[in-house]
Design a protein around this nucleic acid. Sequence first.
DNA 1: ATAGGGTTAG
Length: 587
Amino acid sequence: MSKQGLNMKFKDYNDLLNECVNQKSLRGGQRVQAHMIKTQYLPPVYLRTRLIVLFLKCEVLNDARMLFDEMPERNVVSWTAMISGYSRSGFYSEALCLFVGLLRSGTAPNEFTFATVLTSCAGAFMFEYGRQIHALIVKSPFGSNIYVGSSLLDLYAKAGKIIEAQSVFESLPERDIVSCTAIISGYAQLGLHKDALELFRKLHREGMVSNYITYASLLTALSGLAAFEYGRQVHTHVLRSKQPFYIVLQNSLIDMYSKCGNLTYARRIFDNMPERTVVSWNAILMGYTKHGNGKAVVDLYNMMKEENKVKPDSTTLLTVLSGCSHGGIENIGLELFDEMANGNDGIDLGIEHYGCVVDLLGRAGKVERALQFIKDMPFEPNGAIWGSLLGACRAHMNVAVGKIAGARLVETEPENSGNYVILCNLYASEGNWDEVRKLRDLMKEKAVMKEPGKSWIEFGHTLHTFYASDRSHPRKEEVFLKVRELSERVKEAAGYIPDLSSVLYDVDEEQKEKVLLGHSEKLALAFGMISICDAKPIRIMKNLRICVDCHNFAKLVSQVYKREIFIRDKSRFHHIASGMCSCGDYW
DNA sequence: ATAGGGTTAG
């Protein structure tokens, strides 16, 4: 800026600032600002706002805020720019505070403001506040704006109100790829994977042109369904469509393949990535964790630290600890926890990380030490912690500690029926039938019906779903006969004894066995034995944790029929072959 | 001038 620049006017400043915004030049903006001060030029609202936008773009939020606070007057664009700056950087509550300031100042928000502020509500989990803003929008002329609409439906979806989200989506005067992706991902994020997939297919038929965000959301749903064939089709399609291969999409592919049981494909994508984020590492680590491959988890974690390009986050640490536990390398896990707790990574450990240590100690049979650890830890133990300890007590038949954990669990989560089952088994093992009876009464009174158990299996490009004692499948007769046949055969050949203590209904023994044979994973297994060719392994998915009896049943089937079985339950993969399971019977 | 949807974990 030379001498003749000293009497610069609005237009000159404006041109200069536009140039700076385009080039994202912070220094340029600062020079313009200094020049204005030097020449005592008082910039109008418009130019001040341009400068704020530039600072926000360069991520110097505090400088932008200072300019904003110094403004003698503001218009809706200045407010909105500042609000969206906070929102983009994740300072949602700051953004919401400013929105309140805007309303107080008597400025009328516009469609840009509403779109931004709804995103902030979702980010800050302030759904009730979002609903109030929705009421403002209804009174405003912006209800039919597509940006406002997609932001609003996303807010409802993230609040778990999918019906409201769907109705906002349907009321949109027009649809574009963003609003379509928002509703698909809404279903996927809520675990309504089947609905997400169906909606995707419908919108696709209607001509939706997907982009990489749409595919990432779709892949979340396919991971949940473990729909391997479909997932692979999406992968090929994405490759063929020659979109730039975004990291987010590769991350979803890693997750999809590992949740479909194909770690080889997942690892191939991971290895070939030119750039990785922490999510890429977490996704592949989680894959090995769920498959019980503790060594691979630790190797990868070391590789990550050696490479030193991507910093681990708290999810990484959690996954690594959980990987050591599921992978049966308790000592290494405990060592790593000490390292983490001493702050090498500068990440605060949460109660979940301490929960992993309880798992590690419990799995190693150090149940008393686990109890002591819980007493010493800097958190108030919650249901997950006591549940983990109770699981260890069941596996190692430690009735004394089990009573303590069980008592605390019945207090903290009286509605969880699974806890009663384990506790009853423990008391039954020492013949304390009085206590068993009391617990059953308590359970009848307090426990609620959990999510119904279901299992599914991919065959002939279709997912076949089974519920407990299901009679809806077209081949049900065949399936029931096959379950009986399997049961008789493993009884004879391998001494299968149904674990009747897992059934808590008050019915006779014959009925109990019937209940056990009706479990959804046994139905899916029988269906797989009928329909899938002998050479192929059977892959079953289950929405809850597999029960002890079904686990045992599958092991014996694998032994007697010489068949490889993969079961993905809520917590991990069980790779079952020759009568043994990769989980080491601890899950 | 200012705006919406996305990947891992529990």
